[in-house]
Amino acid sequence: MNQPLGHPVRQPQPKKRPPWMVGGVAVVTFVALLYIVEVFDQLTGHSLDSNGIRPLESDGLKGIIFAPLLHADWQHLGANTVPALVLGFLVSLAGLSRFVWATAIIWILGGLGTWLIGDLGAGPYETNHIGASGLIFGWLTFLLVFGFFIRSAMQITVGIVVLFIYGGILWGVLPGTFGVSWQGHLCGAVAGVVAAYLLSKPERQARHSRKTRQPRLTT
């Protein structure tokens, strides 16, 4: 039986979604998860809130994992919603892989820092730190410095815009309103800078390599 001549027909490749869409879906999904958790928490009489970060207590270490998912009430969650959507989305524009790694570093490192210093300035009161604000502060500082680490004009511009819009909340890393975890804000912010430095390593190494390959001119 004769076979038709010519090149085999190529199957069309599935169209990739643009990065901004993938990042947007990831961030919206995360925020939706926060609302699902809060619905369950409300229906069970705030049974989840005790799973926050309790500083220097061994059973409080689990709060490092759970604290960013928990909120005291709808007002608390509502205050974190818009910053989480905006800043999380902007971080995701650096690439989904970097977004995931940045979030993981801020989540774990910021939570560990809160566990270590969370009772600082609390006096005789025992503290239980919950809420996504530490993560939000980490995303904020990541955006502020990442562009300078990778020498990207676009990322630097994003950082400047973010500083202009959200820079005022950085005062939240200082002791202030009773009941607000400035310790969590501070540790999240520090973790965001660490994440930006670590995740900018490919660009920093490439920049270093270019410098070392440049010939030295003498006169």
Results as ranks from 00 to 15, higher is better:
Gly78Asp: 04
Leu93Ser: 08
Ser97Leu: 14
Gly131Cys: 07
Leu140Ala: 00
Pro124Arg: 12
Gly88Arg: 01
Trp74Phe: 14
Leu116His: 02
Asp41Ile: 05
Ala79Met: 12
Ile106Val: 15
Asp41Ala: 15
Asn80Gly: 11
Gly60Cys: 10
Leu90Thr: 03
Val82Ile: 15
Leu96His: 06
Asn128Gln: 12
His71Cys: 07
Leu77Tyr: 05
Thr81Arg: 04
Asp119Gly: 08
Ala94Arg: 04
Phe137Arg: 03
Asp119Val: 01
Gly123Leu: 04
Val86Asp: 04
Gly88His: 00
His71Gly: 04
Gly131Gln: 04
Thr44Trp: 12
Ala67Lys: 00
Arg54Gln: 15
Trp101Ala: 08
Gln75Gly: 13
Asp59Thr: 11
Ile106Glu: 00
Asp73Val: 10
Asn80Phe: 10
Phe89Cys: 07
Asp41Trp: 01
Gly123His: 08
His129Ala: 06
Leu48Gly: 03
Thr103Asp: 02
His46Ser: 12
Ser97Cys: 10
Ile64Glu: 00
Trp74Lys: 15
Asp119Phe: 00
Ala67Asp: 03
Ile136Ser: 00
Gly78Phe: 00
Pro68Glu: 04
Asp49Ile: 12
Leu109Phe: 09
Ser133Ile: 09
His76Gly: 03
Val37His: 06
Phe40Pro: 09
Gly95Phe: 04
Arg54Val: 14
Leu69Ala: 08
Leu77Ser: 09
Val82Tyr: 07
Gln42Pro: 03
Leu90Lys: 00
Pro68Lys: 03
Val82Glu: 04
Ser58Gly: 13
Trp101Arg: 10
Ala132Cys: 11
Leu116Ser: 04
Thr81Lys: 03
Ala72Asn: 09
Trp74Val: 15
Gly138Ala: 01
Phe66Lys: 07
Ile65Cys: 12
Gln75Val: 14
Glu126Lys: 15
Lys62Pro: 09
